[in-house]
Every structure is written in C-alpha cells, then in structure tokens.
C-alpha cells in the first residue's frame, strides 16, 4: 500500500515546552486516519506542522514521497494536501463558489495580459476550475447556495464549505481539524456522511477530533497523542482496549460507546 503522508520523529518545542515529541506515523492512500488526545496533547500543533504553517524543531515530513519538512505552506496544495480549520476560516468577502475556487492557479505559463484579455486557454482553465468547484459543492449539497455570502450561512454549512474548498484542491490527502466542533446533531450526521463519501473517493483523510463516537464509527486507524507523544496507534478496537489510552484519555464511559 502506498504511503501518502509520513512523519519521522517529528518534534516541535516552544521555548521549554515540548508540544510535539518525536511523533512518527504514516497514513496510507485512501485511509481514514484519526488523531485523538486530550486537550493540550499537541494535536493542533501536529496538524500545523503537517500543513506547513509551523516548521518543526526536529524530524521530517514526507508528502507523496517528497520531503516537505521545511516547505512553505502554499506549496503543499500542489503536492496533494489540503486542510480545514477548527474555527472555520472562510474568506468572508468571497461568495461560496469563489471560496471554493480560490487558490486555483493556472500555473506559471499564465501572464497578466492573458488574464486581462481572457485568452482562450485562460477561459478554459477557469471553466475547468469552476466545474471542479461545482462538483465539490454538489457533493456537499451546497450548489444551491453558491452565490451566498459567507456571513449569511449557518455555522455547520460554513464548515461544509470549507470541506468543499479542500475537496476542490484535488488533493489526495485532506486534514480536518475538529470538524464536528460546534455542530448540532443534524449537522453531525451530515458530516459523518460527508466523511464516508470522502473515503469512497479514495482520499486519505486525517481527522483531528475530540468527538469519540465520531472517530470510533469512522476511523480505520487511530493514533493517540498525550503530552506531545504518541502513546498508541491501531484500529479503533485496539486503541479502545489499550490500557495506556484508557488511563490517559478515554475513561470507561467512552470505551463502552
């Protein structure tokens, strides 16, 4: 099985604080992978390292067999990675459709004059980008609100727009930062369905999540972080049975869930 994303002894320290400590893991193509851990376990820092927003103090990251350890964040889309944010970071002054189209770039060949004159190839490229955005939006039942302003949309819908934006990036791995946070139960059901769809598309998904029932129901493999270290990794059943995990995080209630 091909590895899409791999970290080797990834470490991040802030002054004296070790936020992520020597974490090694690999995510396979099309895999539903979850990273869980109590508050302050280093999950968000780990995700920021993966998506290039922070550079690691030590260790390495490989994305689709390319070392991206110190690559700028904006270069990762081209290499196949997209992500969402916990607190929903959409572009407020763009419409839903434009949000999903933003970030598409025609490549080095397009000059300003081509953009202004709308040379044929630029129009074709832009049409293709729009078609891709349309597909992503339809997948998440958002096409009807393509012209809406972001501020008019309920929070759960905004979350889905972010997922659509990540989808349209044509990545082969998507990182989702606590997508269930702040959703109501209906929105949560929709989210689980969307997550399963992503899986059927053959996308690898890394989910950082608090919501245990969601993770247990969806993930194929789970890594557990605690105080910046990986204390366990395995299938939901294995993780559930791991005494270290129970001690650090889950508690008996969640194990029964």
């Amino acid at each position: 099985m091909t590895t899409v994303l791999e970290t080797r002894k990834l470490t991040k320290t802030f002054g004296g604080l070790v936020a992520v400590n020597g974490v090694s893991l690999s995510v396979n193509a099309g895999e539903a992978f979850a990273v869980i851990g109590p508050n302050g376990a280093g999950k968000s820092t780990f995700l920021n390292l993966l998506s290039g927003l922070m550079s690691p103090t030590d260790g390495e990251i490989f994305l689709n067999d390319t070392s991206v350890t110190n690559s700028p964040a904006h270069g990762l889309r081209r290499l196949g990675m997209a992500r969402t944010f916990q607190n929903g970071r959409l572009f407020q002054r763009l419409t839903v459709l434009e949000n999903v189209m933003a970030g598409g770039c025609p490549g080095e060949g397009a000059r300003l004059i081509d953009v202004v004159l709308r040379r044929g190839f630029y129009d074709r490229w832009q049409d293709a980008l729009r078609a891709r955005a349309e597909t992503a939006l339809k997948k998440l039942d958002l096409w009807a609100m393509r012209d809406a302003e972001i501020s008019q949309l309920p929070f759960g819908v905004q979350r889905n727009v972010e997922i659509a934006r990540a989808l349209a990036a044509e990545a082969n791995i998507i990182l989702l930062d606590e997508p269930a946070a702040g959703l109501n139960s209906g929105e949560r059901v929709a989210l689980v369905r969307a997550l399963k769809d992503l899986k059927s598309e053959g996308l690898a998904v890394v989910l950082i999540e608090h919501d245990m029932s969601l993770v247990m129901a969806w993930a194929e493999r789970i890594a557990v972080l605690n105080f910046g270290e990986k204390i366990a990794e395995g299938t939901p059943a294995e993780v559930r049975a791991n005494p270290k995990v129970i001690e650090a995080y889950l508690g008996t209630e969640a194990v029964d869930a």
């Binding site: 904006h74 889309r77 959409l90 763009l94 598409g104 770039c105 025609p106 630029y122």
Partner: peptide, 30 residues
C-alpha cells in the same frame, strides 16, 4: 481591467489574502 482582474484567480487570491492569510496559504496561495 480591474473588473477582469477581480473575476480572475488573482482577484480571488487578493481578497482571500486580505480575509485570512493563513487559510489562503493552506489552499495554495503564495
């Protein structure tokens, strides 16, 4: 020209940068 730019990838990227630089970076905007 300004209207053409607004509805191009550059226009979208400029507005995205102003609204949220971090999110812009993660969707591939330099």
């Amino acid at each position: 020209i300004a209207l053409r730019l607004r509805h191009s990838h550059l226009g979208r990227a400029m507005i995205a940068v102003r609204d949220d630089e971090t999110a812009a970076l993660t969707i591939g905007i330099d």
